[in-house]
């Protein structure tokens, strides 16, 4: 046995037991009859059929829809900030980084409860509006926009930092050269900056999309029961409903969906070729 292979055994065993094992168990349970707790039964497609009959697909559609909106908003919000951090703020970029990173030390749920206080009827937002302008706001909490706000707020760093890296990789001389050759700012943005920052843009979008797809706390805490997202369904199936096979089936679909998305996107879009490494 080669020394490299031998040295890899502990890590491989750990991954097999700790990572691949549970996934395989989830896969196995998804083919077990509903409401059972054993893997030693005849496999069935009953769970997969129930996604249509029990309208679980709705929570799946909601998850994809809200995640797409969150990614789009994150891209629009983060791009200018990332541009500033990559090209303009200089030493102040570190301060901005700190401002964004420090809240991550507080648990996500607690930060979301902070937003509950803001959005609550007679909460900070509503109360301030009443005091300053005498306007009563409609209920902000437990709405779809509140969920999107939560997603954008929680996943901002995952979009921002890949974008900063992506934009730092665009040499200023290329933009100067394009400008010298007559290109307008919009043309430079389209022809030079975006294509060259594409690896960062892709990674940011991919990360935030997949994280949003699996998000749970935002829809529960800020959305109440307005919208059920897929992760919510999975949690219920494993806990209240005590229906492991159904939860496993939903997990498998989510994993296959997001996994194949990453796979095909990174397959079709050759990042090295985009930025001219190859």
């Amino acid at each position: 046995m080669q020394p490299g292979v031998r040295a890899a055994i502990p890590a491989a065993a750990f991954l097999l037991i700790g990572f691949a094992g549970p996934l395989l168990m989830v896969l196995g349970y998804s083919f077990m009859p509903p409401r059972t707790f054993s893997l030693a039964q005849a496999p069935t497609f009953a769970n997969f059929i129930s996604i249509v009959t029990d309208s679980y697909y709705l929570s799946f559609v909601w998850s994809v829809f809200l995640s797409l909106i969150a990614v789009a908003l994150l891209l629009v919000i983060s791009y200018p900030v990332a541009y500033g951090m990559a090209k303009m703020f200089g030493p102040w970029a570190n301060v901005v980084t700190m401002i964004i990173v420090v809240p991550l030390l507080v648990s996500e749920n607690i930060r979301l409860f902070g937003w509950v206080l803001v959005l609550l009827k007679n909460g900070i937002a509503d109360g301030s509006m009443q005091l300053l302008f005498g306007v009563q706001l409609p209920s902000l909490l437990y709405t779809v926009p509140a969920i999107v706000l939560g997603l954008v707020y929680v996943y901002l760093p995952f979009m921002l930092f890949p974008l900063v890296i992506g934009l730092s990789m665009v040499p200023d001389t290329l933009k100067e050269a394009a400008s010298d050759l007559g290109a307008s700012r919009l043309q430079i943005f389209r022809e030079i900056e975006v294509p060259l920052a594409m690896p960062g843009i892709m990674i940011g979008c991919m990360l935030t999309f997949i994280l949003s797809l699996g998000s749970l706390a935002e829809s529960k805490i800020l959305g109440g029961q307005t919208v059920i997202m897929i992760a919510d369904d999975i949690e219920s199936a494993f806990t209240f409903a005590q229906n492991w096979p159904k939860g496993a089936m939903l997990s498998v679909i989510l994993i296959v969906f997001s996994g194949s998305l990453v796979f095909f996107l990174f397959r079709r879009i050759d990042l090295d070729r985009i930025i001219g490494r190859r």
């Binding site: 040499p171 001389t173 290329l174 100067e176 050269a177 394009a178 010298d180 050759l181 022809e191 030079i192 294509p195 060259l196 985009i274 930025i275 001219g276 490494r277």
Partner: peptide, 12 residues
């Protein structure tokens, strides 16, 4: 227009 020291060719 100018030919840059780094040439500034567009790598993509």
């Amino acid at each position: 227009c100018m030919v840059f020291q780094s040439l500034a060719l567009f790598p993509h």
